[in-house]
């Protein structure tokens, strides 16, 4: 199986604090990798470094052999529009709030050259349905949507051009428990259907269990344990992992 993303020996300090302490990981095509940990564990920092949004003090990141950290801003933006997708924790960061749902979904299609209004609109409607938003709301503004709907719209907007690798930063954060469950089911279905590779950051162990093939546990900038999700969660080796797992309430 092809390695999509490879990170080696990442280090990043904020003053005296080690946000990333010798972190390495890789993502192969078609797999979902979850990075879990408490707030302050460094997981969001790791995601940003992997997506080229932040520079580490040392270490390397490669995507399909290309040096991500050495890319120009232009190259990185091009990658983010084509091969990559990024789902933000707060949907407002990933949507144009003043643009209709249809416009939000259609934008990436238009950026890649789509020129038929009717086709763009049909595809936008199809995607809205896929993420369980009533197609009749295609002309509504996202600011009139619930938080859960906004997040689903963000997912549609991100996936419409079939990116190879999707970064997700706490996609269910800030949502009601029942809404979270629905969103996770949706993400799982889309990942299977489209064969996406996903790197998801979450503090929610249950979400990781539902979605991820492999899991990395972070604590204070270090990866303390990693492996197949079921193995790590059913038979945690590191004391911290054991603590995390045992603190999750039984479903």
């Amino acid at each position: 199986m092809k390695t999509l993303l490879e990170a080696k020996a990442l280090r990043l300090n904020f003053g005296a604090i080690a946000a990333l302490d010798d972190v390495s990981l890789d993502v192969t095509a078609g797999e979902v990798v979850a990075i879990v940990g408490e707030s302050g564990s460094g997981k969001t920092t790791l995601l940003r470094v992997l997506a080229g949004q932040m520079a580490p003090d040392s270490g390397a990141v490669h995507y399909l052999g290309r040096d991500v950290l050495g890319m120009t801003e232009a190259e990185r933006r091009r990658l983010m529009r084509s091969d990559w997708g990024f789902v933000h924790q707060n949907p407002r960061d990933g949507l144009r709030m003043g643009v209709s749902a249809g416009g939000n979904v259609g934008e990436r299609l238009m950026a890649l050259g789509a020129r038929h209004y009717g086709n763009i609109r049909d595809e936008a409607k199809a995607w809205l349905q896929r993420v369980e938003i009533d197609a009749g709301r295609i002309d509504d503004l996202p600011r009139h949507f619930s938080g859960g709907m906004q997040q689903r719209l963000q997912i549609a907007r991100t996936l419409v051009t079939r990116p190879k690798l999707v970064f997700m930063d706490e996609p269910t954060g800030g949502l009601d428990v029942s809404v979270q469950a629905r969103l996770l089911d949706l993400i799982r279905a889309l990942v299977r259907e489209l064969g996406l590779s996903v790197l998801i950051v979450t503090h929610d162990i249950a979400a990781a269990r539902l979605l991820a093939d492999r899991i990395l546990v972070m604590r204070r900038g270090q990866v303390v344990e990693q492996g197949l999700t079921d193995r790590v969660l059913d038979d945690p080796q590191h004391p911290y992992t054991q603590l995390l797992v045992s603190s999750v309430l039984a479903a």
Partner: peptide, 8 residues
């Protein structure tokens, strides 16, 4: 997107 919105 702006042109799309106008038509919509």
């Amino acid at each position: 997107v702006r042109l799309y919105e106008d038509i919509a």
